[in-house]
Design a protein around this nucleic acid. Structure first.
Length: 241
DNA sequence: CGCCAGGGCCTCA
DNA sequence: TGAGGCCATGGC
């Protein structure tokens, strides 16, 4: 199957199986609870919160990120200015539940300083390639975090590849996992560059990886099974799992 | 208990 | 370029 057909077929199947996901939780203004309701437009404070969340959730379950974000909110530290000035030790304590808290405290402070020099409103003017390169130049911002920031904070179409995405397509095609850049290029060539579509697609892939395409796959009832090389390779084994 | 999360950096071939 | 070690807490 050509890439264009493959990527669209996967999206259709996942959308039909899992429905709307409402991706990237953002706190409502004046509220202390993050919700998954979709938003067309984010305030600068909400954009910043999303960016902080992308760093806090690096190799970490979102469940562990929530208390860290709440702690930052309670400490009134969820702003560029405060985050830039707060002592790193103190910051690390607040975000402890998110894991790697010393590393992440360092990354957050570096990132806050970066935003001090390059305000969000200024970054928002940049074309995606320039914005992405600038983000990637920051210590602690890798490809997935950069693309998550571009897509979920800035609302610009940059397809997010994560470990789930690599695993799902490797199993589908019966190949080794592709590099981040290779898989993203295929995605960009195969799909319309539409922010809500990229947003929904990534969310669906995450959901699918949790429901079926786990490390130990649960192929029974998998919505992609009819086209999956893994399920075909050893049907008897796969069907039992 | 063990496993592993919505990664990224560094080092070493 | 790619594999391997490291960072760390908490849910299941």
């Amino acid at each position: 199957m050509r890439d264009r057909a493959l990527f669209r077929w996967v999206y259709q199947k996942l959308a039909a199986a899992y429905g709307p996901q409402g991706w990237w939780p953002v706190a409502d203004a004046g509220s202390h609870t993050a919700t998954y309701r979709k938003r067309r437009h984010l305030s600068p404070a909400q954009q910043f919160e999303v960016m902080v969340g992308t760093i806090l959730t690096q190799n970490t379950a979102w469940k562990n990120v929530e208390p860290a974000l709440q702690g930052l909110r309670a400490a009134h530290a969820l702003s560029v200015d405060v985050l830039g000035k707060i002592p790193q030790r103190k910051l690390a304590r607040i975000i402890r539940s998110s894991g790697y808290h010393n590393q992440k405290a360092d990354r957050l402070k570096r990132f806050a300083n970066f935003l001090c020099a390059h305000p969000i409103a200024e970054l928002a003017q940049l074309p995606i390639p320039e914005l992405r390169a600038l983000l990637l130049a920051q210590h602690g911002i890798g490809p997935e975090t950069a693309d998550s920031i571009i897509l979920y904070a800035f609302g610009k179409p940059s397809f997010v590849i994560d470990a789930y995405t690599k695993r799902i397509f490797a199993r589908l095609e019966g190949t080794q996992e592709q590099s981040y850049d290779a898989l993203q290029q295929r995605s960009h060539a195969a799909l319309p560059h539409h922010t809500p579509r990229f947003n929904a697609y990534h969310a669906l892939l995450v959901q699918h990886a949790k429901q079926h395409c786990r490390k130990q796959p649960l192929c029974a009832g998998c919505p992609l099974r009819s086209c999956c090389a893994h399920a075909k390779r050893d049907g008897s084994v796969a069907s039992r799992r």
